[in-house]
């Protein structure tokens, strides 16, 4: 798998280049849009959930007497968006490159990964904002470094699921709409808008669902290293990495096996 990825790096890069240079070509603000959109969401959610619903964020790692709901929320949002962005984008790539795949034979996953590279740039921009936010709050710690493997695992997870679903979506066009609904539900079943402790006080079944949601694991780990400045237990990060890698490998393998004659279905 790694060898194949490496061999096709030029093609992945070529697609990334195409998507990169055409993504916001016709808009005035260009790449600023990729930040304005999540920031607007952040503002609305932060206002509604902290002021109307009065949800309390846990104490900041640097100062147990202070909290910042916006920083807590944005940490979770960035992590979730990394997953869902890669997933949704990957899922629609086969269709949007259908014209090409029907006429030229080349590895069908290359445009998908190319698009993902561009998506990762957007996530990187969001991360810069997140880091700036924490710097401004003075909430800085060495545990930040652990965010790198966590985000890597999140990306592999999202990419793996995206690869699997892209083939299904190429054949049955309504999959992407179903997935959209599921992602929306997952957003609220992940402790992004509320701390995990808040769910534990509610119905048992709800707490079980939230804890069984793999995204909870990733978001919680990010909360710990970025917001609370603590390291998770030693097995958490290797576990997440192994999980992400397994899903990615499975996605890649399934994709390769079922996409050989994809040109006929597009």
């Amino acid at each position: 798998m790694i060898g194949e990825l490496y061999r096709q790096r030029a093609l992945i890069w070529a697609f990334a280049n195409r998507d990169f240079s055409t993504r916001y070509r016709a808009s005035v603000l260009g790449w600023a849009w990729s930040l304005l959109q999540p920031l607007a969401t952040l503002l609305v959610y932060a206002a509604v959930f902290s002021l109307v619903f009065r949800i309390q964020a846990p104490p900041l790692g640097s100062d147990p007497d202070r909290t910042s709901f916006a920083a807590f929320l944005f940490t979770g949002m960035v992590t979730f968006n990394l997953f869902s962005g890669l997933l949704m984008l990957s899922m629609t790539q086969l269709k949007s490159n259908g014209e090409l795949l029907r006429k030229v034979h080349f590895p069908a996953w290359t445009p998908i990964l190319g698009a993902s590279v561009v998506q990762l740039v957007q996530v990187a921009l969001e991360l810069v904002v997140l880091v700036a936010m924490f710097l401004w709050l003075g909430n800085i710690g060495i545990s930040w470094l652990l965010a790198i493997p966590i985000l890597l695992a999140t990306a592999m997870f999202g990419q793996g699921v995206g690869l699997m679903l892209s083939v299904v979506n190429a054949r049955y066009g309504d999959v992407q709409y179903i997935v959209q609904v599921i992602l929306q539900a997952l957003y609220f079943l992940t402790p992004i808008l509320y701390p995990l402790s808040l769910v534990e006080g509610t119905a048992d079944w709800l707490a079980t669902i939230v804890k069984a949601n793999p995204l909870t694991w990733f978001v919680e780990a990010m909360h710990q290293v970025m917001y609370s400045l603590t390291s998770p237990q030693w097995w958490v990060i290797p576990g997440l990495l192994a999980f992400g890698l397994a899903v990615f490998w499975a996605g890649f393998t399934i994709f390769n096996r079922s996409s050989e004659d994809i040109g006929e279905f597009l």
Partner: peptide, 28 residues
């Protein structure tokens, strides 16, 4: 194997001719 089945199938309308040559070349 290269196919002249549909010429310019991989061209992106917003990209320049030169950029498209690069992209199409990589695809081929």
């Amino acid at each position: 194997v290269a196919a002249l089945i549909e010429l310019g199938a991989g061209f992106h309308p917003d990209m320049t001719g030169r950029e498209n040559i690069r992209l199409n070349g990589s695809i081929l």
